[in-house]
C-alpha cells in the first residue's frame, strides 16, 4: 500500500472510532439524541448518557491516547530504545507519587485555574525527570541503556514511596489512591476533558514542531548536533512537553500503561521511522487505540466496568513480550 493510502485508512479509522464508539454500550441509544445535545436532567436519559457520559469519555480517552502515544514516540526517539516510554522511565511513577503525596497531605488549592492535584502530578513528573537527568549529567553516563535502567530504578523507588504513603493513609484515602493508580477514564465529564485538553494540546504542538529534531535525535546525538540541532536544549523542551502531557493525563485518568509502547510501534511498522509521518500517525492511532480499549473496558462486562488501565495492560503485556523477543535485539 502506498503511504498516502495508509494515512487515509488511518484517518477513516479515526473517524469511524469517533462516530461509532459512543453508540456502543449496554444501553442502545437511537440517532435522535444527536438533535438534543444540551439536554439537562434525567427526563431524557438517552441524551444524558450520550452527551454527558459517552461523548466526554470518548474525548477523554482519545486525548489521553494521543498524549501517551506521543510521550512514547518522543522517549523512544530520544533514548533510541523501542521500550522507552514515560512509564518505563519513571515519569509516571513520579507523577503518581505526587498525587499520592497530595492526597496524603490533604491539600487543596489551585494556581491560575489549574487544580492542585494536577500541579502535584506535574511536580512529581518533572521531579523524576530532573532526578534522572541530573544523575546522567553528573555521572556523564548518558547511554540510552543506562538512562533506561536508571528510569526503571526510579520507577521502583517511587512505587515503594507510594506504598509507604498508602500504608500511612487511612483506608478511604488509600482506596482513592489505589483506584486512581489503576488508570480509569470512567470519571470523565466535560470538565475533565477541558482540564486535560490544554496539556495535551500544548505538549502535542511542541512535539509536532520538533519532528525533524526527533528524527535526528533518534539516530545519534553527534549526528543531530552536527546537523545543527541544539541537542541539550531540544531534549529539555521535549522532556518538558512530555511531562506536561503525561502529568495532565495522569491526574485525571491515572497511569494508563502500554499505550506509549504499542501505538508508536504499530505506526512504526506501518508508516516507517520518519517522525514527520510517525508523530501525526502515532498521535491519531494512540487516540484510536485507547478509545477502543476504553470501549472494551466499559462494554465487556455487563453489570460493571473494568478500569481501562487493566485492558491496555492485558493487551499490552503480551505485545510487549512479542516486541521484546522478536525485535528486542535490533533496538
Amino acid at each position: 500500500m502506498k503511504g498516502n493510502v495508509k494515512i487515509w485508512c488511518l484517518i477513516i479509522l479515526a473517524l469511524v472510532t469517533v462516530f461509532v464508539t459512543p453508540w456502543l454500550g449496554e444501553r442502545s441509544i437511537g440517532f435522535d439524541v444527536l438533535a438534543r445535545p444540551f439536554t439537562m436532567g434525567v427526563d431524557d436519559l438517552d441524551a444524558v448518557i450520550f452527551w454527558q457520559i459517552r461523548v466526554p469519555r470518548l474525548l477523554l480517552a482519545f486525548l489521553a491516547g494521543v498524549g501517551l502515544s506521543l510521550g512514547g514516540v518522543v522517549f523512544q526517539a530520544m533514548f533510541r530504545n523501542a521500550l522507552a516510554t514515560p512509564f518505563t522511565l519513571g515519569v509516571a511513577g513520579g507523577a503518581s507519587f505526587g498525587v499520592a503525596l497530595w492526597v496524603q497531605l490533604g491539600l487543596s488549592f489551585s494556581i491560575l485555574g489549574i487544580g492542585g492535584i494536577s500541579l502535584a502530578a506535574m511536580g512529581g513528573a518533572v521531579f523524576s525527570i530532573l532526578l534522572l537527568y541530573g544523575l546522567v549529567r553528573a555521572s556523564g553516563k548518558s547511554s540510552p541503556m543506562t538512562m533506561l535502567l536508571g528510569g526503571v530504578a526510579i520507577s521502583f523507588f517511587f512505587s515503594s514511596l507510594i506504598m509507604l504513603l498508602q500504608y500511612l493513609m487511612d483506608i478511604g484515602d488509600s482506596f482513592r489512591v489505589i483506584h486512581w493508580l489503576m488508570g480509569d477514564i470512567g470519571r470523565a465529564n466535560l470538565d475533565s476533558v477541558l482540564q486535560v485538553f490544554p496539556f495535551v494540546a500544548s505538549g502535542g504542538l511542541i512535539v509536532m514542531y520538533l519532528r525533524r529534531e526527533l528524527n535526528l535525535l533518534s539516530v545519534s546525538d553527534e549526528i543531530a548536533a552536527s546537523r545543527g540541532v541544539n541537542v541539550d536544549g531540544v531534549r529539555v523542551v521535549l522532556f518538558f512537553a512530555v511531562s506536561l502531557m503525561v502529568a495532565g493525563i495522569i491526574t485525571v485518568c491515572g497511569p494508563i500503561g502500554f499505550v506509549g509502547i504499542m501505538a508508536p510501534h504499530m505506526c512504526r511498522l506501518v508508516f516507517g521511522a520518519n517522525h514527520r509521518v510517525l508523530v501525526p500517525t502515532s498521535l491519531i492511532f494512540g487516540g484510536v487505540f485507547l478509545t477502543w480499549c476504553d470501549t472494551l473496558a466499559r462494554t465487556v462486562s455487563v453489570s460493571s466496568e473494568i478500569p481501562v488501565g487493566i485492558v491496555t495492560a492485558l493487551l499490552g503485556g503480551p505485545f510487549f513480550l512479542w516486541l521484546l523477543f522478536k525485535h528486542g535485539e535490533r533496538h
Binding site: R80, R212, N215, L216, S218, V219, S220, R227, G228, V229, R268, G272, A273, N274, R330, H331
Partner: peptide
C-alpha cells in the same frame, strides 16, 4: 548503527536540517 531504519532519501534529507 544498524537499527536506524529511515529510508535512504529521508536520511539524506535530514542533512538539510
Amino acid at each position: 548503527n544498524a537499527s536506524v531504519s529511515f529510508t535512504v532519501l529521508d536520511f539524506v534529507m535530514m542533512g538539510r536540517y
